[in-house]
Design a protein around this nucleic acid. Sequence first.
DNA 1: TTGAAAGCGCTACCAA
DNA 2: TTGGTAGCGCTTTCAA
Lengths: 338, 338
Amino acid sequence: MHGRHKGRVITAEDVARVIGVSQSTISRAFSNPESVSPATRARVLTAAQSLGYQPNVIARSLITRRTNIIAIVMANLTDPYYPQILDTLTQAIQARGRQTLLFIPPEDGTIDDTLASLLQYQVDAIIIASASLTSEMARVCAARQTPVLLFNRYVPGVRISAVSCDNVASGRDVAEFLHGSGHSRPAFVSGEHGATTNADRRAGFVETWHELGVRSCLQVEGGAYTFEAGFEAATIIARRKRRPDSIFFASDIMALGGIHALQQAGLRVPEDISVVGFDDVPLASWPSFNLTTVRQPLPEMAEAALDMLALDDKAGRRRRVTQFVPGTLVQRGTTRAR
Amino acid sequence: MHGRHKGRVITAEDVARVIGVSQSTISRAFSNPESVSPATRARVLTAAQSLGYQPNVIARSLITRRTNIIAIVMANLTDPYYPQILDTLTQAIQARGRQTLLFIPPEDGTIDDTLASLLQYQVDAIIIASASLTSEMARVCAARQTPVLLFNRYVPGVRISAVSCDNVASGRDVAEFLHGSGHSRPAFVSGEHGATTNADRRAGFVETWHELGVRSCLQVEGGAYTFEAGFEAATIIARRKRRPDSIFFASDIMALGGIHALQQAGLRVPEDISVVGFDDVPLASWPSFNLTTVRQPLPEMAEAALDMLALDDKAGRRRRVTQFVPGTLVQRGTTRAR
DNA sequence: TTGAAAGCGCTACCAA
DNA sequence: TTGGTAGCGCTTTCAA
């Protein structure tokens, strides 16, 4: 008997008529159950069920000024790390009773246009998980009272909320781990140029080796978080006279490309050279890779992000800060003590 | 000067007041520009720009009964094939001026609950790219006039629109290719039990070998589209006395697991045994895998899906059929002529 | 080409 | 606890 009313959508008015109460009562039974007597509520729910009625959340949003929709802006869905982020964030969003609007910005266009069209949808918040945004656009969002948060990155000097893995600390961890297991000739292969993720991982890693008394840390520019970039960087490293005994790649995918290059150059991992990645993407734990890496604390990062957005805080008073969540070194088979 | 009105959101009424026209005119200038004189339209747009006005699409949806939002239901974001689907679909949706609401159904719960909450959001259509749906729920959606489409799967016997790769034909292609390149002892490793994708790939493959006069095609149950399932199936195959000379895995990820198992068993791919996968996920083309596989025509499938949903057809008259789009065999390094 | 007015389905206030 | 009523911001007739 569900909504058999050919084409007509059932409204609260319809339900009200059927059981002889006012439309307001139907509304209250759904949006504020305590304000209706248990008996009435039961009758409403039963009638709604049999008529196939469900509140129209669009109409609700118009008056409450809340859509319960959170936008996620994300390019690069083909990089295996991003789906992980999307999965974690979306599940966290749904766990809080919200829904996810997914935006993939066009490759060429600026993200500002994307954001503008997002704002039309009256989303409650925007989480940007790739690309950045101009300070102009940040101002527009602020004026609209729409909280914006950068996930997995931050923009130094711009006052936008951000949640990121503590990349500096993790870089340190990797350096200390390698040093502690007897390595003394480290190398770092960087990823996307200009990304804070990249710069911070390097900074933590390189500085720590310095503090540990190791003067020279070889640094090779990868240029992108890709298999090919890792491959090429490792090829260069493999050809050096004085080879490093360990390489820290700025991402797992780069590390996998790097390992392939090292093996092609006749080097064994980890016997001849240790390799550490970053992200702990699903592939990293596959037996064929078994990559030592840094796991980003995605669930904690997602929770921190949603907390910062203060979705339930009607006053709209939220902290605008950058929050760093520590990662975890996961030891697998691509490193070994020297 | 963008929307500096502390907290107040700019409405069409505000713009109207500023330039001394009616609110209707503002509305028309945005939703139906031809119905307004060029001069007026220009004034409206200028004023809107400087005030930071943008139409509220929620309010618009309430009256037009179209949200321009399409829901995608997808679990398994960690499997690398699904992000590819999501990416392609979302970009196609955006190219048609719509937005994507992403739903990840809870692992335990039925998809019916998910769909119910989706309908509240008044989405214009629902694309289900993982899991299936009950015929009961299909009826509810039909009553609500919300078109539903299954992507990458179909339910035989249930009248729901569906778009899928032509898995039977691709299974044939693989068989013919292997036969043509001198193989004569084929094996098929199946994936998720009960999935049409799986059954169709097998059917096309096995039947074709029969037609080609090869009686026995070894069939091993993998049970899931996972690395481990492929690994275990290949381990069993490697132990057989009379080994196949080629294995067709129901998915790329399984094939990669299988290759790892074969290599551990001391077999060389493709020298001792050829391997073919399915999907052409990004990893498949990485130099370290270089997997021969079947590429699913995702862009074409996405276009077909959106066409079938007939979003612009106000009459709501849509074909309810299953459409199969042919895939392409991509020859790489895991197969060779015998 | 433009404006006035009705109303989309709901929430929220106030009175009963 | 319930009902009446006034909108939320927009689109869409219908007249002017």
